Simulated assay, not measured.
Amino acid sequence: MIRKLAFGLVACALVVGCKGKQTQSDQAVETMPAGGTPQIDSSALSFDPMGSDSGKISGLVTVRFGYDKSSLDANSKKDIATNVDWMKKNPNTRVQIEGHCDNRGTIEYNVALGERRANAVKAYMVSLGIPADRLSTISYGKEKPLATGDSEAAYAQNRRANFVPAQ
């Protein structure tokens, strides 16, 4: 009998002790109005999360690259200039430049090539007047293809720099 009483007292002490160690999320749940739901920001995203790959952001375009290339040709520079104009019209927007590759080559090689592509685009945008702190880069290598298959058309779609805006 004494054991059961001692066990009960220890259990109560633990419950009381844990009550004092609430996290902020625990406290938020307790202060929620009875029968209410938590406040969630339900405002729509300002931009398509696929960025320029979606084709739904007027004035922002994906830049294409040749096979095994990270250098910018005349078409790439024209597309980047279009994106620079877009960024100048949206001065509070930051952009992540994603470097992508086709599915040929090793993972390591394609990640490095995607990084060179993204950095080449960023450097050119900075030379056209976009502050470097408004641009970030990431390489996905061959991990996020737009097109599947082993044709030149699929390869060409996947060799790109995608622009994903964020406010």
Rank of each mutant, 00 (worst) to 15 (best):
L60K: 06
M1K: 08
N162C: 06
D41C: 11
G129H: 05
V126M: 03
A120F: 10
T31I: 13
K4Q: 14
D68V: 14
Y124H: 04
Y109E: 15
T148S: 06
T31A: 10
A156F: 01
V63L: 15
G114T: 10
T31K: 12
I107T: 06
V29N: 03
I97S: 01
D73T: 14
N162F: 04
I138P: 01
G141C: 12
I130V: 15
G114C: 10
S70Q: 08
S76H: 00
Q167K: 11
S136H: 12
N90I: 01
A112V: 15
I57A: 03
N158R: 14
K19R: 02
I138L: 12
K69E: 11
M1Y: 08
D73A: 04
A166Q: 15
I40H: 03
G17Q: 11
I97C: 07
F47A: 02
T93P: 02
T148P: 03
K142Q: 13
E115W: 04
S151C: 02
Q167E: 12
G51F: 01
P38T: 02
R116S: 09
A112W: 00
G36M: 13
R116T: 13
D133K: 15
C101D: 02
N75L: 14
Q96V: 15
I97Y: 01
W86Y: 08
D68W: 06
C18F: 15
W86P: 12
T23V: 05
L135K: 09
V126P: 00
A81M: 09
T137P: 09
L72N: 03
Q167R: 05
N90V: 13
V84T: 01
Q167N: 07
T137N: 01
S139V: 09
N92G: 14
T148D: 12
T31W: 05
K122F: 08
E98H: 13
G51M: 13
I57E: 01
K142W: 06
G35T: 05
Q39C: 05
N75Q: 15
T93I: 09
P49M: 04
K77A: 05
K56W: 02
N92K: 12
D53E: 11
A74G: 09
G129R: 14
L135F: 03
D48H: 15
R159N: 07
Y140H: 11
P165W: 07
V61F: 02
K21A: 15
A44T: 11
L146N: 13
T23R: 10
M87H: 01
A112M: 15
E143W: 11
S139W: 01
G17D: 01
E98K: 14
Y109L: 11
K77Y: 04
S127P: 00
Q157V: 02
A44M: 08
A44R: 13
K4G: 11
E143A: 11
